[in-house]
Amino acid sequence: MLEFRDIDTHYGDLHVLKKVNYTIGKGEIVCLLGGNASGKSTTMKTIMGVVRPTAGSVVFEGEAIERLPTAERVRRGIAPVLEARRLFPRMTVYENLEMGAYTRTLGPGFQEDLERAYQLFPRVKERRNQIAGTLSGGEQQMVAIARALMARPRLICMDEPSMGLSPRFVEQVFDIIQMINRQGTAIFVVEQNANMALSIAHRAYVLQTGQVVLSGSAEELRHNPQIREAYLGELLIT
């Protein structure tokens, strides 16, 4: 569904992603692990077209999209859940959802998707007329996910969905991610919370200073000693 083929990105002289390859299949949850400054956020920005690769190709459903503007990518079915939620703070929850559907013409489809989002997040429905900036972090995350769904995406890219949330909410968010995935949407999730991410993902990539150093099924990675030490917070006793 989405493929990175030998992607390089630069910020000026800084070489961020170095010949990176990912594959996200239909209906998969793929997670991307990595420390700070490993290139996770740049990966997201490259998918969305905010950062253009200097070499390589991004392929979505068989077509190269790396030269397409962001709006066109959203139209083709890629929607983001941004790091730190990034709702429009002085718009209502409902208006935020409308912005999620910005690339689609409003019609019966919009109402349908709205109902579907409300069903998934009854809390969002309750809060629909509230100013988004006044919601709690957990509620904002729900709105952020609902907003992405409003684009009727085939692939959702999530940047750190668990960031800043209480453990109870983290679990809820990951349950919802799985639920959305079961309804047929592929999910690419960048996460610091490796434990949680690996528990729901089918496959995972590990990024280190711009290079993929490990990849495989989530199951495999969860038992990989390096991963356990570096990301799952377990000390290896040798």
Binding site: V50, R86, M91, T103
Partner: peptide, 17 residues
């Protein structure tokens, strides 16, 4: 609405299309 969204968070607005 797109104007207001852009004023509040230009990058997020762009990512909405």
């Amino acid at each position: 609405k797109a104007m207001r969204a852009t004023a509040q968070d230009p990058e997020a607005a762009r990512m909405m299309g």
